Amino acid sequence: MLALGCDHGGFPLMAEVIKYLDEQNIPYKNFGTFSEESVDYPKFAKLVAHGVTSGECEQGILICGTGIGISIAANKIKGIRAALCGDVFSAKATREHNNANILAMGARVTGPGLALEIVKAFLETPFSNDERHIRRINQIED
């Protein structure tokens, strides 16, 4: 199951992501926000991050205006490796090399068509389990 979260700036793009997930029958839990009314993104980053670290959800997707703030906030939670991606290559690479467990995107910088390609790449790309990547992830966690 995926954990979803966004702020008001990310709400329209999250609606597109949810439509895609529904079409693909991919289960998710939406932690909000649920409108374009102004909210503080750290709250939703924390909810999604805890959804992932608790094991309730396997991965997460976070969206704010740029993706920067919400990814910084999520990465404050131990065990989270949130990656801000604006292209398909980065989405694949962060899964293969970093075993990223949260995808962050910026609704004001990434259009819906590209965003859905990024989501697909993130969700379909497995971690490589290569010894060098495991070593580096361990160094990050230490």
Rank of each mutant, 00 (worst) to 15 (best):
G55M: 11
L103A: 01
K46N: 05
K46H: 06
L84K: 11
G79T: 07
K29D: 14
Y41V: 07
L2W: 14
L123D: 01
C64M: 06
L4I: 11
E117R: 15
G9Q: 13
T33S: 06
I137P: 02
G106H: 08
H133K: 01
L2V: 06
C6A: 14
T110G: 03
E23Q: 14
E117Y: 07
H50E: 15
Y41N: 08
S71H: 05
S128L: 00
L103E: 00
S38M: 12
L62V: 10
G113N: 11
I118D: 00
A100V: 04
N30M: 05
E58L: 05
P112K: 09
V119I: 11
I140D: 00
H8K: 13
A121Y: 03
F34D: 09
D22T: 15
Y41D: 11
Q59L: 15
F122V: 02
T33L: 06
G51A: 11
R108P: 07
S38A: 11
C6L: 11
M14H: 08
T66P: 10
G69A: 02
E117P: 10
I63N: 03
C85H: 02
G60R: 03
S38E: 15
E36R: 13
E36C: 06
Q139N: 10
D87K: 04
R136G: 01
L123S: 00
L84I: 08
A83Q: 00
K46R: 09
A45E: 03
A93F: 05
D142S: 15
L84S: 08
A121Q: 06
G60A: 04
G111V: 02
A115N: 05
G51C: 08
R132T: 11
I134E: 12
E141C: 02
D7Q: 07
F34G: 03
L47W: 03
V17F: 07
N25F: 07
R135A: 07
L21P: 04
F44T: 12
V119E: 06
G5Y: 04
M1T: 13
V52Y: 07
A82C: 14
I140S: 00
V88L: 05
A73D: 07
L4F: 08
K19M: 12
I134L: 13
D7L: 09
V39R: 10
G5K: 06
P27N: 14
Y20W: 12
V39Q: 13
N98A: 05
I80E: 00
H8R: 15
G9Y: 13
L123K: 00
A107P: 08
S90C: 11
A73Y: 08
N99E: 07
C85D: 04
E58C: 04
A49I: 09
S35K: 07
H97Y: 10
D87E: 13
R132Q: 13
S128E: 07
K120A: 02
Y28G: 02
G55F: 10
I102D: 03
E56D: 15
S38G: 10
G9E: 14
L13A: 04
F31Q: 11
D7A: 06
L62Y: 02
T94K: 03
I63R: 01
F31I: 11
F122I: 00
A45R: 06
M14Q: 13
P27T: 14
T125E: 10
I26W: 15
Q59N: 15
L116H: 09
T33R: 07
F44C: 09
N75L: 09
G60T: 02
L47K: 11
Q139K: 14
E131G: 04
G5V: 09
P27L: 12
A3I: 10
S90R: 02
P12R: 04
R81G: 04
N138R: 14
G86A: 12
N99T: 03
T94G: 02
